[in-house]
Amino acid sequence: MSEGGAVETTVETIETVPTMEKSLIAVIAVIAASLLIPLTGNKYALYLSTKIWILILYAIAFNVLFGYSGLLSFGHALFFSGSAYTLAILVARLDYPLVVGFILGIAAATLFSAVVGTLSLRHREIHFAMVTLAFSMLFWGIVMKWRDVTGGEDGITGFPRGFSMFWFYYFTVLVVVICSYLMYRFVKSDIGLILEGIRENETRVQFSGHSTLKYRLYAMIVSGTFTGVAGVLWALLDRTVTPTIAHWTFSAIPVIVTLLGGPQSFIGPAVGTIVYVIIQDLITKYTLYWQFIFGVAIVAVVLFFRGGVVGIVERYLRGR
């Protein structure tokens, strides 16, 4: 909860610095503030903020493909659950060390994204969304049916986390910050620039001699791989993997939080994630019907605030 507040207050107080540095300072302030959370000793806040960090990585990774390349994937649960299940199967079923499971889990996500990307990137818009959806639901079907290996609906338990909850939080923050920085460098690189060009006008980029398919595939693999990092962290946090994370409704989460936060900025998805988890958590304290309120929020964002939360803050700052 402190995180959501920190974003706004920091952004408001520093007025003289240019926007870029402003948001950088805000981000650093939020990260610094969040490092204090485990010290409060509140187990629930610790669990919730670890979860937020992992979902932030998931959302930012998704937005590399969506916001910067203009490709709406409705199947990112495949990369998320693919890496989580790979880790769980390697460690719990085949007795590999945790580190091996962690690395091979991420590698599995890379592989999946390369394969799905190769097969699906010919398509655009709705069709791309549907193909990615189909592949991820195919994986979901396998997870549900191949009980001997995946445990079916029960999932897989019985693998260690490797850290206490306390240190796992710091490990998660470290991994998420490093991964986010790498993705930031990626979208600000020449490749990122070409991707934005493709998003705006594909034909022109093709005329300047670039294979747009190749760059889209890069974006897909980067996005899928970092989604895989989020997946293995998620598996370690709960020390359980269940088919929930493979179902298409889990692919909808990054789509929603990205639109909620604002797809046009790099930290938009992170802001959206914080808002999403906190709204969900606060509302469920008072009413069972958090979905209803959340649905209303989504509809309102699409109808009235298409820049997302980041867009609102920016408009507010500019207005002064």
Binding site: F294, V296, V299
Partner: peptide
């Protein structure tokens, strides 16, 4: 609006109706 907004709005309607 672009397709993602359309998909997400109708997804929001699902959440509302389900609750």
């Amino acid at each position: 609006l672009p397709v993602p907004f359309q998909l997400v709005l109708t997804f929001g309607l699902i959440l509302i109706f389900e609750d």
